[in-house]
Nucleic acid binder design. Structure first.
Lengths: 238, 238
DNA sequence: TCAAAAGTGTTCTTATTACACCCATGG
DNA sequence: CCATGGGTGTAATAAGAACACTTTTGA
């Protein structure tokens, strides 16, 4: 066996290094009823004019996670956001200009925090309901599908849904979020019983304002308590 | 934003392409009592003499999965083996000779199928209990840990454990396999009740031979039935 | 006849499901 | 006073956990 883990013939080196790697970031948001994904409209070939996932080549001295964070920040202005690596996509012909493997990530952001930035404006970034995404550039439909499946698994086993909600939310909003992600209806009483029984929600003793019906109580995710529970062996399961 | 997804300045191209990617394969086996991993002793710098995960650079016209299969086959002679991509590792300085990101896989093989091949002999390949692996080359300890965690999750939610057992096995062997992977004791009666209630095991009406005690019944995993159940919405859970 | 592992059921506790009505508010 | 969504409990069922003795075989 040859390889950089062992040693390679000089003639092989050139072709081994004619390759590059990128990150692509599936940025999820929730608008109160639909799970959305932030797409950009490509301004250059290949796939000019097509919708695509935001992504970029990884700089030579840049870690993969850092590259994914950079893509996100350039597009949205946001930092310190929930980010999860999902999978490497490396089919030989996935990129028309050369051998480029891409590391797929997803991010969860509070959609209200997103304001159109110069970078995103220039790229016509916009939110699309995940159920209504059409044909994307490259293998980005496959990447989106994989990330969505990964999110569906994750959201039931870790309290990551809260990353998509404002700091203060109602139980109905939380339920609608789960219904949008899991693409399934949940029973209101059972959902509330279960989520409240975990003792991870702080009752803020505040009410919704400006709604034309009985206002709902506002809650906050109690991360400190969650971490204390985890340290004692608790594992989130919904 | 620049990048191959958009366009890049010529001066950037060279440095972007001074990079390579590899696959590393955590090959798991089960010897009846311990979960084992197949390691090679490095014959060349860097880390000469150290134990490492088998891996290699990905060829320019080779898919990632294909590269992982190739590494496995060169070492063990085995094909059509259970293989799962886990994560990309890409810390800037993870490889002393340049920027190399690696895509980590794990494979599950029947340890009895493994015979020392010329390639594995030349590399001093050998099995190590996962609980007794020392310091490995590169970031391979981190990769091994991540793959082991991934396997622990997977083995409870999909019938992949059978990949590590011979075609005919006893319930005690199956239980010992789960105990080795999960690093936990399981209740014999509850384990049997649960696994048999799934109706995925075919009772072969054969008994163990050559044991100095009451011989156990032999079972076989019934993949066809499993796939039929999955098509009807069943999901394995142990 | 002994050693060693195989095989087998019941009870208790906990989690999950299904389900329908009254309440508080703004317009 | 009406429309809208908020909020609440119980009973039935299913799943999980704890637990100990008898059986079969080879040596």
């Amino acid at each position: 066996m040859t390889g950089i883990n062992g040693y390679i013939r000089m003639s092989e080196i050139e072709s081994f290094f004619k390759s590059a790697f990128s990150v692509d970031n599936v940025i999820f948001g929730f608008d109160g009823s639909d799970l959305k994904v932030l797409l950009i409209q490509r301004g250059a070939a290949p796939f000019k004019g097509k919708w695509a996932l935001p992504g970029d080549l990884v700089y030579p001295n840049e870690n993969l996670d850092t590259a994914a964070e950079r893509v996100l920040e350039q597009l949205t202005g946001l930092r310190d956001v929930y980010l999860e690596q999902v999978k490497a996509f490396g089919a030989v012909n996935r990129h028309p200009l050369g051998r480029v493997i891409t590391i797929a990530y997803y991010s969860l952001i509070k959609i209200s925090d997103f304001l159109v930035t110069p970078a995103s404006f220039a790229q016509s970034a916009s939110w699309h309901a995940v159920s209504e995404v059409g044909e994307l550039a490259f293998d980005h439909n496959e990447i989106l599908d994989t990330c969505l499946k990964s999110l569906k698994r994750k959201v039931r086993r870790a309290p990551v849904g809260f990353e998509l909600l404002p700091p203060k939310f109602t139980l109905t909003e939380l339920q609608q979020l789960y219904e949008a992600i899991l693409d399934d209806k949940l029973d209101k009483r059972n959902f509330r019983k279960k989520i409240l029984s975990m003792n991870l929600l702080l009752d803020l003793n505040e009410l919704q304002e400006g709604v034309a019906h009985r206002p709902a109580k506002l809650y906050q995710f109690d991360r400190d308590t969650y971490e204390a529970f985890v340290a004692k062996g608790f594992s989130f399961d919904l």
